[in-house]
């Protein structure tokens, strides 16, 4: 039986291969939910799904696409938005 604090599924389970070849069960905190488009709710591409401590160490260019509204709107919605702004 695992220790009582590990019996709930609030932590995710990761199988880690040790140097001796054994596979050991490790408990880690769950990842945050995937980033979504602020307009249509589609899942964003190019935005990593990591806990803040890992995001902190990443360069800015790894965290979101390098276009206007990158990491906020999906590419389709940005196109629609920019087109609309251009036509005004």
């Amino acid at each position: 039986m695992p220790a009582p604090r590990y019996r709930s599924r609030s932590l995710r389970r990761v199988f880690v291969r040790t140097p001796s070849g054994k596979s050991v069960l490790h408990y880690r905190k769950r990842k945050p939910s995937k980033a979504q488009c602020g307009n249509c709710g589609a899942l964003l591409k190019g935005v990593p799904r990591e806990r803040p401590f890992k995001m902190q160490n990443m360069p800015k260019t790894h965290k979101r696409p390098e276009r206007p509204y990158g990491g906020v709107l999906c590419s389709k919605c940005t196109r629609i938005k920019i087109k609309a702004m251009a036509r005004q």
């Binding site: 390098e66 276009r67 206007p68 590419s75 940005t78 196109r79 920019i82 087109k83 702004m85 251009a86």
Partner: peptide, 11 residues
């Protein structure tokens, strides 16, 4: 023109 896609989008 205005670019819609890529990092030059909106320019």
């Amino acid at each position: 023109c205005v670019k819609i896609a890529g990092r030059d989008a909106g320019k």
